[in-house]
Simulated assay, not measured.
Amino acid sequence: MFDAGRHSVRRAMAALAMEGKLSVEQGRGTFVEDAPKLNYHVGRRTRFRQNLLSQGFEPGGETIAEDIVPASPAVAEALGLAEGAPVHRLLRRDMADGVPINLGFSFQCAIRFPDWARLRREGLSVTEAYHAHGVTEYFRHSTSVHSRRAREEEAELLQQHIDQPVLVVRKVDVDGQGVPIGHAEGIWAASRVQFVFEGVDDGPVRFPHRGGDAE
């Protein structure tokens, strides 16, 4: 129709895919991207499900892999556990209106939360899984964000172009007494989400397995 060469069309398609306007799915083809663009609010009471529902998106997700592993030094420090303590490690993919927006690992103490993996696999939300273990309230203590290029397997699971960036979000949640209960590292599709940070003051966080309270 426009008398454009095949090479020019390929370059144009690649540029549109990098901008997030097209979705290239290997083995299926190229599609106009209709992924949601949502504002994800991060505050003291950050909740994935509430974030999406409040903006008219249907939350969803699936557990891709799960196991119990010894806590690495970084995970042990984040959760206030002894290094090598057993922790649940879940790899999940979260959705908004059926479109992948987040992929990441989460860690919870396997002793305090023995049924964590099963409850999440059965579809309970994080809040519901904590309630089942007697945690009636929890809060976001810390969040860090940086960007990088997506890795091949991440781009495939997020259904985005390999050259599109991702946002790496690390967080720690604490219970009502300030004890760390959850640590996660999420890989977010940068073209589909914008993070909005709200001012909080959580106070000290307790690390009972480290020989006292710490801030």
Score class of each variant (00 low, 15 high):
Asp97Ile: 11
Ser106Phe: 02
Thr63Val: 14
Glu152Arg: 04
Pro86Phe: 02
Val87Ile: 06
Gln194Leu: 14
Gly56Met: 08
Val174Thr: 13
Gln194Asp: 08
Phe105Arg: 09
Thr63Phe: 12
Val168Asp: 02
Leu157Asp: 08
Ala71Glu: 01
Ser8Tyr: 05
Phe48Cys: 01
Asp213Phe: 04
Arg45Gln: 08
Gln50Tyr: 00
Arg192Ala: 08
Leu158Ser: 13
Asp67Val: 03
Arg151Tyr: 02
Arg170Glu: 08
His131Met: 11
Ala14Cys: 04
Met95Ala: 05
His209Arg: 13
Ile162Trp: 02
Phe113Val: 13
Gly176Ile: 10
Ser191Lys: 14
His133Met: 13
Leu16Phe: 04
Gly199Asp: 15
Ala110Trp: 15
Ser142Arg: 02
Val69Leu: 01
Thr127His: 07
His209Gln: 13
Val196Gly: 01
Asp213Gly: 01
Val193Glu: 14
Pro114Ser: 15
Gly104Ser: 10
Thr143Lys: 06
Lys171Trp: 03
Ser106Ala: 11
Val135Tyr: 09
Leu103Asn: 02
Lys171Asp: 07
Pro73Phe: 12
Pro180Trp: 15
Arg47Thr: 03
Gly211Asp: 03
Glu33Ile: 03
Gly80Asp: 13
Arg112Cys: 13
Tyr40Pro: 01
Val9Arg: 08
Arg118Asp: 03
Lys37Pro: 15
Glu152Gly: 00
Phe31Ala: 03
Ile187Trp: 07
Gly212Lys: 11
Leu79Thr: 04
Phe197Asn: 10
Val172Glu: 09
Val200Leu: 06
Glu137Thr: 03
Ala14Ile: 09
Gly186Tyr: 03
Ile162Arg: 03
Asp201Phe: 11
Val169Gln: 14
Leu22Trp: 05
Ser125Pro: 01
Gly104Ile: 09
Ile68Asn: 06
Pro165Ser: 07
Gly134Glu: 10
Thr127Phe: 06
Phe31Lys: 09
Arg121Phe: 03
Val135Ala: 15
Thr136Glu: 13
Val169Arg: 12
Asp34Asn: 15
Ile101His: 10
Arg93Gln: 07
Leu158Phe: 10
Arg11Pro: 00
Phe2Leu: 03
Leu103Phe: 05
Met18Leu: 04
Leu124Arg: 10
Gly199Tyr: 06
Glu198Lys: 02
Gly176Lys: 07
Thr136Cys: 08
Arg44Asn: 08
Ser23His: 13
